[in-house]
Design a protein around this nucleic acid. Structure first.
Length: 652
RNA sequence: GCCCCUGUAGCUCAGUGGUAGAGCGCACCCUUGGUAAGGGUGAGGCCGGGAGUUCAAUUCUCCUCGGGGGCACCA
């Protein structure tokens, strides 16, 4: 294993800095590390062979580029988490005999492991499990990799009553090695089926982990299967990282739109209307400010706005296909077979198509862009509802564009541009990803149509210069689509906008136009939404801004308050001038100390606080305190009002 | 829909097999205080709904509805 040795079995190992070393075939990462330096051998936890993470103990048989991974490296996090999952599994099986293990991967920020056990786990078990985990980590057991014969492995796990594991092995592809990792001492030490890789010993997991929650999860993610118990944990390289993560979670909780909705007096929910919003004045101000902006924007982009009925006869939904495909999620009145079953609209598209059909269309009218802020109703599975993010009645900023084939590509580009403009105006465009979803297995329409539509979207993606990923097979049953994914201020992703090229609804609903040639043709129909659900988008905005909305959206833009009641008159004066300038201002004349009022209006996320006392009244000024700042600025009243009015202008 | 947790005053939550408590908010009084909680007094609850066990249920059991965390779902 000396670098100078030359023999037939020699292989070249290229290090990240480009240096090439010669070794005998069969050398391991651990040996290479030891060869480079003693200290490296101690800190290294894994090896990347040609870009793929592997065990340090794995023999390398051919030329390769390698990188040695230390515990401090970013790549180590995933291994720490994965190993933590194994350690937790052993701890759980030690403490709760009879529990079956299934799978336990690393995930963002941590790991989980799914267990099968009749008794439910509770969060009270966490302390015990964590304690046991620390013992296993302290024990410093080596992770030993073994390759077993398939039948032996199946027999072994079946023999232990580990039926899920046996099933996993049975379903592994023929050519796949059955890898077993031991982490216990001796022949009866704990072991698990795993594709690896693992760190050298359990000690490398460290102590910066914490069990977070228990939840149900279906075996293999299929709701027809048994429900397992999943324990989630978070794991980091050190306590500082762990603490930072826990702090981040607290911050996320503090900006939860349901909490802020309460603190800012925006909306509420109540039992009698599950999944529907009671908008209070403050919330509705935001809602309408956003809608007003959208209306101006959409009008300027060449759309007409229409509005169609909410309650339609079942005949209509049968024709559109919703009765067959979407009935489970529709609110239906009357039983089938009765005189007049009807349903609330879950989507606006069939209604929009009726407006298109209301007259004989000419090619001269195309592209025809019909926008509809349609109030739709969708019966959601009970477990799916979530604040504003998933409701049962909401407004969709929908639009349907009817155009010729030649116009299609340009129209879609325009939509993407519009979507991006809106997100930019709303301050949430820092990290947009487009999911390009192509034909799913279950679909209608001809292959040629799908070819054309997908090729068209591909061309659009080339033209618009935005980040996108292919989401193969995830299109709607009638159309490929582009979904716009936003990332908010704390890194969560939200799917909002969507563009769908529909080749089926036009023929299904018998849409036509008279072409230049005097013949009748079916137009293309493109569905698009920018915000998606207005309710949900507001939830996203509230959380993105942690309640500190841009001034033009802020429900209360300014509160005027006097230091003492002696200045009520001047405060009233200031209020009137603010309101005359179109600012959403309120006055606080309560007999309270200024500290108290500052605190209260800060918690309610009031954008600007104008405080007036003797000096301000004397000089016709106001002392301004802006939300999120402790500074006070004393400014001439008219300047302050002008500046605020200017800032309060909508971006369009 | 599934698993676990949960429902007590307007809000946040404590609590008990013998029909309830705190803080905040609210009302009234005192206080007129320069940038994140001044003081006092008081009102306010069918303990989510239904059934059962019990002499007695807010408390225990079951059903149901809502909420939360996941899973599944999101055309």
């Amino acid at each position: 294993m000396k670098a100078q040795n030359i023999s037939n079995s020699n292989i070249s190992i290229t290090l990240p800095d480009g240096a090439v070393r010669q070794y005998d075939a069969g050398i391991t990462g651990a040996e290479i590390a030891a060869d480079i330096s003693k200290s490296l051998a101690k800190t290294v936890i894994a090896i990347k062979i040609d870009g793929e993470l592997s065990d340090l103990s794995l023999p390398i048989e051919a030329d390769a580029s390698i990188a040695l991974i230390k515990r401090d490296d970013d790549e180590a996090l995933e291994m720490i988490r994965h190993d933590a999952a194994h350690v937790m599994a052993e701890a759980v099986q030690t403490l709760f005999p009879g529990t079956q293990v299934t799978i336990g991967p690393a995930i963002d920020n941590g790991f989980y492991y799914d267990f099968a056990r009749d008794e439910p786990f509770s969060t009270e078990d966490f302390e015990k499990i964590e304690k046991e985990m620390r013992k296993i980590v302290e024990r410093n057991s080596a992770f030993v990799r073994e390759v077993w014969k398939r039948d032996d492995a199946i027999a072994y796990f079946k023999g232990k009553g580990e039926n899920y594991k046996a099933e996993l092995i049975e379903d592994l592809p023929e050519e796949e090695e059955i890898k077993i990792y031991r982490q216990g001492e001796g022949d009866d030490g704990w072991l698990d089926l795993c594709r690896g890789p693992h760190m050298p010993t359990t000690k490398h997991v460290g102590t910066a982990f914490k069990l977070m929650k228990v939840a149900g999860a279906y075996w293999r993610g299929d709701s027809n299967n048994a429900m397992l118990q999943r324990i989630y944990g978070t794991a980091w390289r050190n306590d500082k990282e762990l603490k930072a993560h826990l702090t981040m979670l607290e911050e996320a909780e503090a900006r939860d739109h349901r909490k802020l909705g309460n603190a800012m007096d925006l909306f509420h929910f109540q039992d009698e209307a599950p999944g529907q919003v009671f908008w209070h004045h403050n919330g509705w101000v935001i809602y309408t400010a956003l809608m007003d902006y959208m209306r101006r924007k959409v009008r300027a982009a060449g759309y007409q706005e229409i509005n169609t009925p909410q309650l339609l006869d079942a005949r209509f939904w049968k024709a559109s296909g919703h009765w067959d495909k979407y009935r489970e999620n529709m609110f239906i009145f009357g039983e089938e077979g009765e005189e007049n079953p009807s349903a609330l609209k879950p989507m606006s598209c069939p209604g929009g198509a009726q407006v298109y059909k209301a007259g004989l269309r000419s090619y001269r009218e195309l592209p025809l862009r019909l926008a509809e802020f349609g109030h739709v109703f969708r019966q959601e599975p009970s477990g799916a509802r979530h604040g504003l993010m998933r409701v049962q009645a909401f407004t969709q900023d929908d639009a349907h564009i009817f155009c010729t084939h030649d116009q299609l590509e340009d129209e879609v580009v325009k939509m993407c541009d519009l979507i991006k403009e809106v997100y930019t105006d709303l301050g949430i465009a820092d990290d947009i990803t487009i999911n390009f979803s192509t034909r799913p297995e279950q679909r209608i329409g001809s292959e040629e149509d799908w070819d054309r539509a997908e090729a068209g979207l591909r061309k659009v993606l080339d033209r618009i210069d935005m980040k996108w990923v292919l989401n193969e097979g995830d299109g709607a049953f009638y159309a490929p689509k582009l979904d716009f994914i936003l990332r908010d201020a704390i890194g969560r992703e939200w799917q909002c906008g969507t563009v769908q090229v529909d080749m089926n609804m036009p023929t299904r609903l018998d849409l036509q136009y008279v072409g230049e040639d005097g013949e009748r043709h079916a137009p293309h129909m493109v569905h698009r939404a920018i915000l998606g659900s207005v309710e949900r988008f507001l939830g996203v905005l509230i959380e993105h801004y942690a309640g500190k909305l841009p001034l033009w959206l802020a429900p209360v833009q300014c509160v005027v308050t006097p230091i003492t009641s002696d200045f009520d008159g001047y405060a009233q004066d200031v209020l009137e001038q603010l309101q005359a300038a179109g600012i959403r201002a309120e006055i606080d004349l309560r007999n309270e100390k200024i500290n108290y009022k500052v605190r209260e209006h800060s918690l309610a996320k009031v954008s600007a606080l104008f405080v007036v006392g003797a000096r301000e009244q004397e000089n016709k000024t106001v002392a301004i305190r802006r939300l999120g700042s402790k500074d006070q600025n004393v400014v001439a009243l008219h300047e302050a009002i002008n500046a605020l009015a200017d800032e309060a202008k909508a971006p369009y």
